[in-house]
Design a protein around this nucleic acid. Sequence first.
DNA 1: AAAAGAATTGAACCACCATTCAAATCTTCG
DNA 2: CGAAGATTTGAATGGTGGTTCAATTCTTTT
Lengths: 191, 191
Amino acid sequence: MKARLSASRERIVAAALEIMAEHGFGGCSIAVVAERASIATGSVYSHFPTKGHLFAEVFRTASQREVDAVSRAAALETTVAERVTAVIETFCGRALQSPRLAYALLAEPVAPAVDAERLVFRRAYAEMIADYVAEGTASGELPQQDPELTATALVGALAEAMVGPLAAGVAGPNTVRDLITFAHRALGVST
Amino acid sequence: MKARLSASRERIVAAALEIMAEHGFGGCSIAVVAERASIATGSVYSHFPTKGHLFAEVFRTASQREVDAVSRAAALETTVAERVTAVIETFCGRALQSPRLAYALLAEPVAPAVDAERLVFRRAYAEMIADYVAEGTASGELPQQDPELTATALVGALAEAMVGPLAAGVAGPNTVRDLITFAHRALGVST
DNA sequence: AAAAGAATTGAACCACCATTCAAATCTTCG
DNA sequence: CGAAGATTTGAATGGTGGTTCAATTCTTTT
């Protein structure tokens, strides 16, 4: 019984995730999500108070997955330079693999309730990077700087550099390599 | 007669600009704009086919103004480093002076038709900066790099670094200074 | 000054979609 | 098995706000 309840809740989220990865948030009406989850539209409201709550959770789930993947990749490395390289390669690699999803998470116009989650998403990246930068300045690998600001700016740089390729459907073969160079220079990695 | 026509067209755009600078695009319904312009709601449609067209033009007008101001400031300088400094100072200074407008242009969720103009807006900045970067690599002031990518990444970095302060209403006193340092490092300006 | 044409008015229309709720179905327990 | 309670159904509701259009007002022309 409880199982059935949480099962259909998960089916709703899963259905919404699929649709959003295919068509973005724009294609996600309650009716469409309910149909994909094989339940009635009204039943969605047994599990979520409003559409905003549902899609906030969907956004959170999808973005957590991304942050985790990037975080895991970075953790395998040791120097700040290597970690930032891993962050960029993973971030860009995944974005180019699932462009519709990446666009939805990074840039698609959405309702304010969902937009708030996007700030959290970007801050999660920024905090991860800020930690590495702080390590680097502490150890002397990097010159003195405000880790928060550097990290925020880097996240912005990555996101912006991806939006074009995501819209166009392709990235130049050197985009990722050049972004890594950009980031290393910006951090002050000694060459 | 013709004068009257284009006069009220301009009044519509001016009214929409005011409202958007005060309340963002969210506060801009056709009815509100028409009222501020002292015309009937229906009359808006004698000048613009749809709401999207109107606000695309409004967005274009506002952003052109910003790009021009930044461009003018940069043109007064000579080295790439100084020009980029001028770009950042002008960009951030104006954004912090008119936070509601800056937020609307940079980050506010909007209809897709208007969103398309945002890409143009950001590209205009990126192209300006790309020209300077190309100059710099040609003259040897900067190391070899892809000017387009560097410029795009810098625009993203600036925008992202401003969103927080715009939402909070204030920027740390060192934000602009640190952003300039970030940009100079990223470009490879020799210290 | 009057007729023809253009522009303006603003209330009504309509499409869209989130949200609701009474009826039907299913689950649990005496 | 049958009653009580919980869940699901999906058609109906409602709010929002862009868009339309017949009636009106203004401008131009003769």
